[in-house]
Simulated scan of single mutants.
Amino acid sequence: MNLHIENMTCGGCARSVTAAIKDVDPAATVTVDLASKRVHIESAQPAERFTAALDDAGFPPRQDP
């Protein structure tokens, strides 16, 4: 799944986003593109679990195609 996180603006934000994702699924593969503010997640978990965790962490995502 691909997510766009508008307020992910620095390396600290990227680490926080990654940590929130890993809290949901420690085995998830996470690729962060800070320049485009996009995150790619490979996981068997449903997208809703990740979007809820990111909302709670202060990084509300929107799904990218």
Results as ranks from 00 to 15, higher is better:
M1Y: 10
N2W: 09
N2L: 13
N2M: 12
L3I: 10
H4G: 07
H4P: 01
H4T: 10
I5E: 01
I5V: 12
I5D: 00
I5T: 02
I5Y: 05
E6Y: 10
E6V: 11
E6T: 14
N7F: 04
N7E: 04
M8N: 10
T9Q: 12
T9K: 14
T9R: 13
C10P: 09
C10S: 09
C10K: 07
C10I: 06
C10A: 00
G11Y: 00
G11F: 02
G12I: 00
C13W: 04
C13A: 03
C13D: 05
C13Q: 06
A14E: 00
A14M: 05
S16C: 06
S16N: 13
S16W: 00
S16I: 05
S16E: 06
S16M: 01
V17Q: 06
V17E: 00
V17D: 05
V17G: 00
T18N: 03
T18I: 02
T18Q: 09
T18F: 02
T18V: 02
T18H: 01
A19W: 01
A19S: 14
A19I: 04
A19M: 10
A19R: 14
A20Y: 05
A20M: 07
A20C: 04
I21C: 13
I21N: 05
K22A: 03
D23W: 02
D23M: 13
V24R: 13
V24Y: 11
D25K: 08
P26M: 00
P26V: 01
P26Q: 03
A27D: 15
A28L: 01
A28H: 03
A28R: 01
T29L: 09
V30E: 01
V30T: 04
V30P: 01
V30F: 01
T31I: 11
T31V: 12
T31C: 05
V32Y: 05
V32E: 05
V32T: 12
D33E: 14
D33P: 04
D33T: 14
A35I: 05
A35W: 01
S36P: 04
S36N: 14
S36C: 02
K37W: 05
K37T: 09
H40S: 14
E42Q: 11
E42K: 04
E42D: 15
S43I: 03
A44F: 10
Q45S: 14
P46K: 11
P46H: 09
P46R: 09
P46I: 03
A47D: 15
E48T: 15
E48D: 15
F50E: 04
F50K: 09
F50H: 08
T51G: 08
A52M: 02
A53K: 12
A53G: 08
L54V: 06
L54R: 08
L54Y: 02
D55R: 12
D55H: 13
D56N: 13
D56A: 15
D56V: 12
A57M: 08
A57R: 12
A57V: 07
A57E: 02
G58L: 06
G58R: 09
G58S: 07
F59S: 04
F59K: 10
F59R: 08
P60A: 07
P60S: 07
P60M: 07
P61W: 04
P61G: 01
P61T: 00
P61F: 02
P61V: 05
R62M: 11
R62V: 14
R62W: 07
Q63Y: 04
Q63M: 10
Q63G: 06
P65S: 12
P65K: 10
